[in-house]
Write a protein that binds this DNA or RNA. Structure first.
Length: 305
DNA sequence: CTAGGGGTAAAT
DNA sequence: ATTTACCCCTAG
């Protein structure tokens, strides 16, 4: 009954994402009828699209609507040993329990929902980390330098500076960066001494999989996110590939926004993140369009018939 | 038609 | 055993 299985090809996923960008998430029928995508998606139904989008969303942020109410005390108590916790915190290997990426910043006394951590949006965060790491400045790098690096490596939104400031402040607040006299450095990550641990951590299974001794200097910290990989690669991409990646970033930003709208009450940070992500993605798209007009146009409406 | 809950089974 | 893809059903 299930179905003979027919894995989604990357082309189909790309088409779906492109369709969502073009028509918005939820306009499955519209996407399906769009001659642009029907060529690839003609085997899929609108419901398939919906389901697939659901699956992808689940994978992207760890908690789609499907298995949200999960994550509880699987293991009866059994306080996580310090070693394990430390490892898990720093490695962040799997896509599942990334909960600690954003452990509730300061203030906000009303943290009722411990699972509200959106891990899908790591773009700017990762960029900042990468910048600091790559710059290798002893004592850390200051905001201007970080901004310069990022702007050099990538396209930056117009109000990028503002976003960066907010992000730096936030990252410092939650202990992932350490600020010393205007300079930011990567927090020791391995020691969560700074963190409040009364924020219970849902690490129950002792399966911290990958982490057979890793270099703590080379950040494997957040590299796991797909976006990160794309951003890292986008520099050397062909315009077409880059455009596709940017388009995808837009789609994900959209998803993030949607989430933030739901969770806006408890997660002010998530909202800010989503905004940042969107701004970033939009700017990315625009810049790409501006620089590679013809090619992108080709990608956008490649005269079907 | 869509969102979303729920389910089965193939793949891994 | 978990993940992934597909199907079904219902409310709106």
């Amino acid at each position: 009954m299930g179905a003979p299985k027919q894995k989604w090809t990357p082309e189909e996923e790309a088409a779906l994402k492109a369709g969502v960008i073009k028509h918005g998430a939820g306009k499955w029928r519209t996407i399906l009828k769009d001659p642009e995508f029907s060529g690839v998606l003609y085997l899929r139904s609108n419901v398939d699209l919906k389901d697939k989008w659901r699956n992808m969303s689940v994978m992207a942020n760890g908690w789609g609507s499907r298995d949200k109410a999960r994550l509880a005390v699987k293991r009866t108590s059994s306080i996580p040993k310090q070693e394990e916790s430390a490892m898990a915190l720093s490695v962040v290997a799997s896509d599942e329990e990334i909960v600690d990426v954003k452990p509730m910043a300061t203030s906000s006394a009303t943290m009722q929902i411990p699972t509200s951590t959106k891990r899908s949006i790591v773009r700017l965060d990762s960029l900042i980390i990468e910048a600091i790491t790559s710059l290798k400045e002893p004592g850390g790098s200051n905001k201007t330098t970080i901004a310069a690096y990022i702007e050099e490596q990538y396209w930056a939104p117009l109000d990028f500076k503002r976003l960066l400031s907010a992000k730096l402040k936030y990252l410092t607040a939650c202990g992932r960066l350490i600020k010393v006299k205007r300079r930011y450095r990567i927090a020791p990550a391995l020691s969560f001494s700074e963190r409040r641990r009364n924020h219970f951590m849902p690490f129950s299974e002792g399966r911290q999989r990958v982490s057979p001794r890793f270099d703590r200097d080379d950040f494997n910290i957040l590299t796991k996110s797909q976006i990160d990989l794309e951003l890292a690669r986008i520099r050397t991409m062909t315009p077409q590939e880059a455009a596709a990646a940017a388009a995808r970033a837009v789609a994900e930003a959209e998803a993030a926004i949607a989430e933030a709208e739901e969770a806006a009450r408890e997660a002010e940070v998530a909202e800010a993140d989503a905004e940042a992500a969107q701004a970033f993605a939009e700017a990315a798209l625009k810049t790409l369009k501006g620089r590679n007009n013809q090619k992108v146009v080709e990608l956008e409406h490649k005269s079907g018939a």
